Computed example of a mutant assay.
Amino acid sequence: MGFFDKKHESDTPIGNLRAHIGTYMYFVKVGKSKFKHKGRIGEIFADMDNTQFLFNQATMGTMYDFKKKLDYALWDAAVHKYTEDMEALKAELLKVVDQEEAAPKEEAPKEEAPKEVEAVEVAPKEEETGDWKSSIKGQMAAAEEKAKKEAERKKREAEAEEGFEVDASEEMTEADCRELWRILQGLEREFQEMKSIADDWFTVHGKGNGCFGALAMMALIPVGAIYGICQML
């Protein structure tokens, strides 16, 4: 059971189907947000999000049987579209994994020689004939400047730690690959549930027709793909 609209969508097979579609699209939106800077992977997720209308139209029904009718042609178009998208995501993930395996392993860094202990600055002794007041003022100013620089350094480190999750690079890290695989597993799980419900529904009610509507929806798919790419620019 999908976790969207459980209370309102669980009374009918089409209601259950729409609940799983909601969960499926949740994973799509997470992927779109997470991987929007990751080149082809981000483009695929954006396209999946922008062609949700296929699912919506297939399960819309009519004004007399809202949420109680499933259009076979539109549903079939949606299944084919999203099957291709998920296969494309798997291919991109495998490509990244294969590249990582083929990459030469970095040698373990050699142990560095122990650094010499920096000499502690010791204020020069003022000669009896020197200006001791100017010397003390100079040391106080130097200590204040050192403390100021240390505070700035800590501030920069804190700001960097706060924004560590923001990754605008196209390079896929190990964490990115693990997250993509987790999302793909969620997509696959919901997709299989959706197909099972739809197959059972068509077994009972038949497939009917609706080819014209399917052709119209398929014609709009490239428009959704272009819109998704533009959204990433």
Results as ranks from 00 to 15, higher is better:
S135A: 15
R178A: 15
K207Y: 01
A102I: 08
T129W: 15
C230P: 00
N56S: 10
K110V: 08
G210W: 01
E112T: 10
M232I: 04
A168N: 09
A103T: 14
K68P: 03
P114K: 13
G61C: 01
D47F: 07
K195P: 07
E111M: 10
D65M: 12
E188S: 05
F164P: 00
W132V: 13
K137N: 09
A113I: 09
F164V: 14
L17K: 01
S33A: 15
I14A: 02
E84T: 08
N56E: 09
V96A: 13
L184F: 07
P222W: 00
A168C: 06
Q192K: 13
V28L: 05
A168S: 05
A103W: 08
H205C: 10
D71N: 14
E179Q: 06
L215R: 10
D11T: 10
E162P: 01
S134G: 03
L187Y: 00
A160P: 07
K34D: 07
H205K: 14
E128T: 08
G163D: 11
H20M: 09
I21A: 04
Q185I: 06
A113C: 08
K154R: 10
E171K: 13
N50I: 03
K38N: 02
K69W: 07
E152F: 00
E87D: 15
G213Q: 01
R178C: 03
A108I: 04
E116S: 06
V204R: 11
E174M: 08
H80R: 11
K146V: 14
I136L: 12
A142Q: 06
H8E: 15
K148P: 09
K32E: 09
I136M: 14
T12F: 07
G186Q: 08
M140S: 05
E162S: 09
D199I: 04
K69G: 08
D131C: 09
E9L: 14
K125M: 09
K154T: 07
K81G: 00
E111S: 12
